[in-house]
Amino acid sequence: MPAPPAAEPGRAAPGEEDRVIETRGLTKVYRGGRPAVDGLDLAVPRGSVFGFLGPNGSGKTTTIRMLMGLIEPTAGTARVLGRPMPGAARQVLPAVGALIEGPALYGFLSGRDNLRRFDAADPAADPRTRTARVGRALERVGLAAAAGKKARSYSLGMKQRLGLAAALLQPRALLVLDEPTNGLDPQGMREIRALVRELAADGTTVFLSSHLLDEIEQVCTHAAVMARGRLVTQGPVAGLTDAVFGPGGRGRLAVATPDPGEALRVLAEHGLTGLRADGEHVTGELAPPEGAPPPDVAELNAALVRAGVRVRAFGTERASLEDAFVRLTGEGFDVAG
């Protein structure tokens, strides 16, 4: 886990200028539907790798479209780099690189010419340095060798990387990446995540949306969790599970036993919830119902043994973001909003 950002300690009230993205009551209702984003209050600290987590259809892309000035909010306000969007788009966006809902390219142009085209669209981009900047962006995403090929012939992974290169044509204060690993193979995902870490190490704030929990846990310092257009929680990733399960919330108990049925019964008696048996592997949530003290793990072990359950292995797993999500929304993570 990367070090937490320097914003919190020794700072009474983090100034507004430390928020790279800040929204108040941001709401979007598409024509004739229920709100796709509903009263969103988001605060993205400068220097963070901010995970924007939610299942498909939870409003991530809609939020990003509003932040980038592509669509008008139905209600609420959004500030990016300290200025209002969409009003200050011309001042804000040159300092923002974005990948929104997958790459979109001109198939009949080469990878390099695609980048030249997008760079020419930015009035703040100096045409005299265009060739050099395009070359560097291609190098950075590992596409230099394929730069002369028509984008039509690129694989999805290459298209994704070319989209990232377009976001890296200039030094950026903020990168907004909407599901950048979507559709990639595991190797491609690793490469993109490594690139994100590298960029963050250079001091760029990264706003990364994803429907993959482990992705957020792997690369993000902060996260916000969305469900059905509403913000469920936000904060440092390390603190999110604590915030949900209480400090010291130990997450799940895992027991390996040849007697799973008996183990389930005993653990249920001792107040564990979310019990599951998968072959010889039994797990259950240690977080107690509201107010009650957490069960003593040593006591649970003794109870199992007393009941004649043969225990091969016994331990606790730290609560994952998925546990937190299930806990907060009462639904599994792959349920579409």
Binding site: M68, L70, P94, V96, E101, G102, A104, D122
Partner: peptide, 14 residues
């Protein structure tokens, strides 16, 4: 249709 419009607008083309 091809989606390039959104990338021109965030470039920002204006």
């Amino acid at each position: 249709h091809t989606g390039t419009l959104r990338y021109l607008l965030v470039a920002p083309a204006g």
